[in-house]
Nucleic acid binder design. Structure first.
Lengths: 342, 342
DNA sequence: CGACCCGATGCAACCGGTTGCAAACAGGCC
DNA sequence: GGCCTGTTTGCAACCGGTTGCATCGGGTCG
């Protein structure tokens, strides 16, 4: 069986061929496929019929050459192990597709040299770059500040970089809300499980959390750390903490930088036979958080709203300005309580 | 602050500008950027310096117009809730990037009309389409058989469709191996937890599993079903099964169509206080399977090998032939045993 | 009935590269 | 020095569309 079907002869059908068959010029064909162009209904019909008969589809790359719009958006991702990344990717690609854009997925996981990759994306004339909660490495920051041919939008990271529009949630308020929830539950020794980003930048959610504690005359009782946003490292962090801390000195509650770490921590508690002895709150509200097994209390960003705002920025080619901070909502389940209580 | 930097004046730098500065013709510039083209070292140097000074990057879209190769591969995905999808996406994009190709992510999750989307991808002149374990809907099959301008490769699904090259693992052998493992453990009442694909196509892994049981004079003792590959549905399936089946009649062991369902099932067992009372085996070996909490016995496909083979098919534009079936390996952990035994 | 206007169409030029061919050039050999 | 060969380079044409402008034709209006 041959790769080529009978009617295309290995060459793609061009507008000129359609034009000939429809008895018009190729420019008229172009107009027939351009919404709002000046063309008679009659001509449009004939062109469309001819196009259908020949199996013509306009070459969008050729079109981009003159229009200077490719309808391609570079979507930059690094943390493939985090389910939240998957949710963002799903939401972002769907939203882009709905607006007639396609996503070029740029994977800047560790071995990849991100500067080079962004450079290549630029050669493909992407209309914009969308960073899905990626850690902004030096490479990226340099790229962003040096070349601003293309709109750049960063989701869910509040570190400000020149030339990059930020769209995130009101993390400071979220952190504060979580602190109040835990305090309201009667917890007094509150800790934080930090991910790799905490080392690189100031996280408003932590600030909000800490400040609320201080407003209540408390301080952050302990900080645990995970070197990557994956289940195993949340597990590890909790496991190590339990090992080195006598039961009497342990935390009442732990706010985790995101859900996958929180679930890792919950699993470590379970493994140690300490289910429900230490309250846990996560962030992102991934699908697994709702599982009857975890019932993880978490903070749910309004993903659709964030993605929508980001895409609007990109497509309108807005000049980067103040961060857009949208509200989320606290999803209260059970993990923030001691088991058996209340 | 303006989007445009100082030196580009809103226009991109073109090869002609570089040519002028380097004192050569634009054709020479083109050759300087074409590996293996005939050009003197001297000229190349001068071009490269000029290019560097002007910040020139070749427009790859313009190039594709004549070369008829875009270096864009459409990567088609539907099950964003499955962690295995994420692993595939990661592996596929990395492998493509290493070969100088970029991925256009095509999200055909339910609301999307997949036929239309593939049509659009074709207009973008993708060099090939890679289906990451997607369910082959009617739309897709029609697309595949009607238009074969572009090489199509399907990963991890063995349903043969005309014009689509399959790259998967030796599922039949895998299913048999899993059956032998469970039988060797002393289990006799073996069941299967099916996902949505089982309804649409014959899964060799199930055939291999069932056949091995029959070779031992047994039959499949029960089949559970989940309507989607997500944690909640694995949980639900097990939960319902436990509800409707008296303890005395329950299965010894359950082979689950994939890991995310298996983990859902394990969580349901835990919730019912039946940890370790029913042996579970999964498929895909996702990251979470290795967690100390689950220690899920699973079958690990050689993802890199599969992806590599698939990409080779695409880039070499091979004519679709017999399915390429690669071996995987059984990862034996603890979930296939009764707790406390051995 | 001629002037005018407007919508529809054709055309040349262009978007930013690449390809095949031919001319220019350089070096090696007798 | 002349001839041959092989490498470099310039050029026209092209990839498949779009854009701005000129032209054409038909309907309206005075």
């Amino acid at each position: 069986m041959n790769i080529r079907s009978d009617r295309d002869q290995g060459r793609k059908v061009t507008s000129a061929q359609v034009a000939e068959r429809a008895g018009v010029s190729k420019w008229t064909v172009s107009r027939a496929f351009t919404p709002g162009a000046s063309i008679s209904e009659n001509a449009r019909q004939r062109v469309m019929e001819a196009a259908e008969a020949l199996g013509y589809r306009p070459n969008l790359l050729a079109r981009s050459l003159t229009t200077r719009r490719t309808q391609l958006i570079g979507v930059v991702v690094d943390q493939f192990a985090n389910p939240h990344t998957q949710a963002m990717l799903n939401a972002a690609t769907l939203a882009l597709q709905q607006r007639g854009q396609l996503s070029i997925l740029l994977n800047i996981s560790p071995p990849v040299r991100s500067g080079e990759l962004l450079d290549i994306a630029e050669r493909f004339q992407v209309d914009g770059l969308l960073f899905l909660g990626t850690v902004l490495s030096e490479d990226i920051v340099r790229f962003a500040t040096e070349r601003q041919h293309v709109p750049l939008v960063q989701l869910f990271r509040t570190t400000e970089v020149d030339g990059v529009q930020i769209v995130a949630i009101q993390e400071h308020a979220a952190g504060a809300e979580i602190a109040r929830l835990l305090l309201g539950e009667g917890h007094r020794r509150l800790g934080y499980l930090a991910g790799p980003d905490s080392g690189r930048s100031r996280l408003p959610r932590l600030d909000g959390y800490r400040q609320t504690l201080e407003d209540h005359g408390l301080t952050l009782a302990a900080t645990l750390a995970a070197t990557d946003y994956r289940h195993a490292l949340g597990y590890q962090a909790m496991h190590d903490y339990l090992q080195r801390t006598p039961a009497a000195q342990r935390l009442d509650a732990l706010f985790c930088e995101n859900d996958i770490l929180a679930i890792g921590a919950l699993d470590a508690l379970h493994q140690a036979g300490l289910d429900g002895q230490l309250a846990i709150v996560g962030f992102d509200d991934i699908e697994l958080a709702a599982s009857p097994r975890y019932r993880l209390t978490s903070y749910q960003p309004n993903l659709d709203a964030v993605v929508d705002s980001a895409i609007t920025h990109l497509l309108d080619r807005r000049i980067p300005g103040d961060p857009t901070l949208l509200p989320g909502r606290l999803v209260v389940r059970d993990s923030h309580r001691f088991a058996g209580k209340d």
